[in-house]
Deep mutational scan, measured.
Amino acid sequence: MLYVKVKTEDGEELVLEVEGMTEDEIREELAKAGFKIEEIEVYEVEP
Rank of each mutant, 00 (worst) to 15 (best):
M1L: 14
M1G: 09
M1P: 15
L2T: 07
L2I: 13
L2W: 14
L2M: 12
Y3S: 13
Y3V: 15
Y3I: 15
Y3T: 15
Y3W: 13
Y3D: 03
Y3M: 15
V4T: 00
V4P: 02
V4L: 03
V4W: 05
K5P: 02
K5S: 04
K5Y: 10
K5V: 12
K5Q: 03
K5E: 04
V6Q: 00
V6Y: 06
V6C: 10
V6H: 00
V6R: 00
K7M: 13
K7D: 02
K7P: 03
K7N: 04
K7V: 13
K7Q: 06
K7I: 15
K7F: 13
K7C: 13
K7A: 05
T8W: 07
T8K: 05
T8V: 04
T8I: 05
T8Q: 04
E9P: 11
E9Q: 12
E9D: 08
E9R: 10
E9I: 14
E9G: 09
E9W: 11
E9N: 08
D10H: 09
D10S: 12
D10F: 09
G11D: 02
G11T: 01
G11P: 00
G11Q: 02
G11Y: 02
E12C: 15
E12A: 11
E12L: 14
E13A: 05
E13D: 06
E13N: 05
L14I: 11
L14G: 01
L14T: 03
L14S: 02
L14W: 14
V15P: 00
V15S: 04
V15L: 12
L16D: 00
L16Y: 12
L16G: 01
L16T: 01
L16P: 00
L16K: 01
E17A: 13
E17K: 14
E17H: 14
E17M: 15
E17Y: 15
E17W: 15
V18R: 04
V18S: 02
V18N: 00
V18G: 01
V18E: 00
V18M: 10
E19W: 15
E19Q: 13
E19D: 07
E19H: 14
E19N: 13
E19S: 14
E19C: 15
E19P: 05
G20H: 05
G20Y: 07
G20M: 06
G20I: 04
G20E: 03
G20F: 08
G20L: 05
M21D: 02
T22R: 05
T22P: 02
T22K: 03
T22G: 04
T22W: 03
T22V: 02
E23M: 15
E23A: 12
E23V: 14
E23C: 14
D24N: 08
D24A: 13
D24I: 08
D24G: 07
D24V: 09
D24R: 10
D24W: 11
E25S: 05
E25H: 04
E25Q: 09
E25A: 07
I26N: 00
I26R: 00
I26T: 01
I26K: 00
I26S: 00
R27D: 00
R27C: 09
R27V: 07
R27E: 02
R27K: 08
E28Y: 12
E28P: 01
E28A: 12
E28Q: 10
E29H: 12
E29R: 11
E29P: 01
L30E: 00
L30S: 00
L30A: 02
L30M: 06
L30V: 03
A31E: 10
A31S: 10
A31V: 13
K32S: 05
K32C: 09
K32N: 06
K32E: 04
K32G: 04
K32Y: 04
K32V: 03
K32A: 07
A33P: 01
A33M: 14
A33S: 06
A33R: 14
A33H: 13
G34Q: 02
F35H: 04
F35G: 01
F35L: 06
F35C: 11
F35W: 11
K36Y: 06
K36C: 11
K36D: 07
K36R: 08
K36L: 09
K36A: 08
I37S: 08
I37H: 07
I37W: 12
I37V: 12
I37D: 12
I37A: 09
E38R: 12
E38A: 13
E38Y: 12
E38L: 15
E38N: 09
E39M: 11
E39T: 13
E39A: 12
I40S: 01
I40L: 07
I40F: 10
I40T: 02
E41T: 11
E41A: 06
E41Q: 09
E41D: 05
E41R: 08
V42H: 04
V42E: 02
V42R: 05
V42T: 05
Y43V: 07
Y43H: 05
Y43R: 06
Y43T: 07
Y43A: 04
E44K: 07
E44T: 10
E44A: 09
V45Q: 10
V45L: 09
V45D: 06
V45H: 12
E46F: 14
P47S: 10
P47M: 10
